[in-house]
Design a protein around this nucleic acid. Structure first.
Length: 215
DNA sequence: ACATTAAGTGATT
DNA sequence: AATCACTTAATGT
């Protein structure tokens, strides 16, 4: 027996939206997946066999070009699923995005075959999926706004506060390079902007970590 | 002691 | 805001 009660986990994270029958069915076929920090869950180009739902922890979803350059698109937290994966599953296309665990996380995986079945059988599943799509869409638009209209220093500050909220800590253990990668900027620029923020008293820069003074 | 990695800085585009 | 070239500081072997 596994150390996790799948039924319990499902109820806690998505029980409020999905009907009991479905939760029951899900708890039987779910596979547990635990990730370590910075583990890549989905690579660009992967063909997905399973749909993940995040139970604990946080996942970041990013775009990646052939040169390995990245851009963070949005985050996925507990009770959420990645809308991109759904499309991948149904149409058997490759993933267009990369998903990385930001912290040790817990996922439940469901074979793709059940997707369309559940769509027909359970109204609550349809609602859940549509809602998920909508949320992702809004987040994508927010990200586009940031890239188009915000200066990099504003984006950086938002990035830091977002990360802090998500990880539930004022102390981020990011290197300047990692931040630069997420924002698709360069390390030098991030270092300088961080220094500015420190001078303004917004943050403190320690070695290998950044402390936010306000949230 | 040396190599490696993260971070700081001035100059250039 | 990005890139280059170089320096400094901290850490690992």
């Amino acid at each position: 027996m596994q150390p996790f009660d799948k039924k319990q986990l499902l109820h806690e994270s998505i029980g409020y939206i999905l009907e009991a029958d479905l939760l029951e069915e899900m708890s039987h076929i779910a596979k547990i997946r635990e990730t370590i920090q910075d583990e890549v869950i989905i690579h660009v180009g992967d063909t997905l066999q399973m749909i993940p739902i995040v139970i604990q922890g946080s996942i970041k979803v990013s775009r990646e070009n052939p040169n390995g350059e990245e851009l963070l698109l949005y985050y996925i937290e507990g009770g959420d699923t990645c809308a991109m994966t759904l499309q991948c599953c149904v149409r058997k296309t490759d993933s267009q995005v990369k998903a990385t665990a930001m912290e040790p996380s817990l996922l439940l995986m469901f074979p793709t075959a059940f997707m369309s079945q559940w769509m027909d059988k359970y109204p609550s599943w349809r609602t859940y999926i549509l809602q998920s799509y909508h949320t992702r869409m809004m987040e994508l638009m927010e990200t586009i706004d940031e890239i188009a209209f915000m200066r990099l220093d504003e984006r950086l500050l938002k990035y830091l506060t977002d990360q802090a909220k998500l990880l539930g800590t004022m102390e981020l253990h990011h290197t300047h390079q990692e931040i630069a990668d997420d924002l698709h900027s360069s390390r030098v620029v991030i270092s300088r902007l961080l220094k500015q923020l420190e001078n303004k008293g917004t943050i403190q820069i320690k070695r290998h970590r950044i402390v936010l003074n306000t949230l």
